[in-house]
Design a protein around this nucleic acid. Sequence first.
DNA 1: CTGCAAATTCAAGTCGACTTGAGGTCAAGC
DNA 2: GCTTGACCTCAAGTCGACTTGAATTTGCAG
Lengths: 140, 140
Amino acid sequence: MDTLDIGEVIRHSGLPASTLRYYEEKGLIRPTGRRGLRRLYHPDVLQRLALIALGRTAGFSLDDIAGMFGPDGQPQIDRQQLLARADELERTIRRLSALRDGLQHAAHCPAPNHMACPTFRKLLQTAGTAPRHPRQPGKP
Amino acid sequence: MDTLDIGEVIRHSGLPASTLRYYEEKGLIRPTGRRGLRRLYHPDVLQRLALIALGRTAGFSLDDIAGMFGPDGQPQIDRQQLLARADELERTIRRLSALRDGLQHAAHCPAPNHMACPTFRKLLQTAGTAPRHPRQPGKP
DNA sequence: CTGCAAATTCAAGTCGACTTGAGGTCAAGC
DNA sequence: GCTTGACCTCAAGTCGACTTGAATTTGCAG
């Protein structure tokens, strides 16, 4: 049988049913049918969910991601959009790297308190302007 | 005069008054007094705000950050905590780097659609497990 | 003294991505 | 045939970090 029960999707993807239903409501995924009430999915849904996860990680919103699938369901991701996001990612990475260095320095710095450390203070200067970028909510 | 009017804090920090009040309510900052209704701040508040911004960028919540100031107002940031955060940052950076590479590849990949590209598919494999990490809300 | 821009308070609203809860349905195993 | 547990629906709630709005108060320029 070439369909997955929602239970299997849950097991394979690690996502809770509520999330799958939410994604469906958002138009991100679509069950191929039902067995009774139970949703049935095409196995491809797993790849699609992975793609969604990837997009979220890259900083796209669910709505952004929904826009990346053509009406046929094939991903039609605009290359410009990808590059733009890669650029933004690059900038984020730079800032986070600086930050990581700063944190490590602060953790080892012998100054009595962090404000007495020139490196730390310098970090404060440059960290003022933060880029705004969506998040990833936890699954507490 | 060694105090800043809230208006000056706004100009120097770029934060709106509502945010300053919110931070105050959270115990993150404290005005030194008032002129009429208007809050007055010690110039140090700017550094403190920078520190808060830094902490947010590093992924700390406002509550976390509030806990990093001793009762005297001096930052007392636990070094273990800093190192832990630096580690987490390091992991995040790695993932984002891989992602950036993947996005760039996808943007240039000649495959008819992204799913036909092996590199992209490989990216999907590894991006499944995302670390959970707070966000930064925008200011639109 | 008057006017007004800039502050103030307080409660309530927003946003995205989900989760939770109450009450209902049903396929499969005994 | 009956139970059971996994699923269902739908509305409402949550979380963090702010923002917004209405009604008020002020400091200061003219």
